[in-house]
Design a binder for these strands. Sequence first.
DNA 1: GCTCATCGATTACACATGTAAACATGATGT
DNA 2: ACATCATGTTTACATGTGTAATCGATGAGC
Lengths: 122, 122
Amino acid sequence: MISEAEAVVMEVLWRSAPRSAEEILAEVGRAQQWQEGTVKSLLNRLLKKKAVKAERDGRRYLYSPLLPREKYVHQSSKSLLDRLFGGRVAPLVAHFSEQRKLTKKDIAELRQLLEELDDEQP
Amino acid sequence: MISEAEAVVMEVLWRSAPRSAEEILAEVGRAQQWQEGTVKSLLNRLLKKKAVKAERDGRRYLYSPLLPREKYVHQSSKSLLDRLFGGRVAPLVAHFSEQRKLTKKDIAELRQLLEELDDEQP
DNA sequence: GCTCATCGATTACACATGTAAACATGATGT
DNA sequence: ACATCATGTTTACATGTGTAATCGATGAGC
């Protein structure tokens, strides 16, 4: 699958695409301390993995995601959930609850969510 | 940190410890197709990482976890949550909800959980 | 005491990953 | 047309990981 460093590049493209390597570097170079070559390498690996595509734009390429963020998020979350929580969501939430890591906002949103589920499935 | 293959060994020890390498192999060997040497290597890496300890028992060693499962679970979950959901729990649950991956049991438990939170914080 | 079976420790090796330098090539200014 | 610059491609290299074979020590049976 796609690695953590690669995912950083993907996040940039998911926010907005197509983008040139230079633009990607500009956006990510600050947070990560990456050189140009690093971003180029990552882009090439992503191309090889068919996670992004590149279209020529004059001298350079513009990159766009092929792998949808939704899919990546789902794969990652499901894998974690399966490995650590027997594939079930409630135990995960319970875990964060025990760690007091639920914000008031989380709680409000969860409540909201559950209500909506009620409405949907009468 | 501790890798996925290593975590498989840890799970065995978290279920019950101390255990000999042989016992660990017996328990994981079926599911994973691991040879003896593989388990030994993983145990050694875990020792080096201070994730387990070993106490002599005659000719062999008995291994026990040093890293608590709670800690491992928390690190892994938090890292995923931060990277993919802005560090917040509700969006993760929403994600699974959209994917229709909330079981009835999940929903019931979440509801329960929220009620308990109400009681706790008056 | 010598030999063999058992364990753990060491070493191996291919592939992934993070990080980047070196190289190639085509566009550009002069 | 030529040198230079900007871009992408190839190669590099250390470290981590999955998977194991081999080496070495140590206790057990003869």
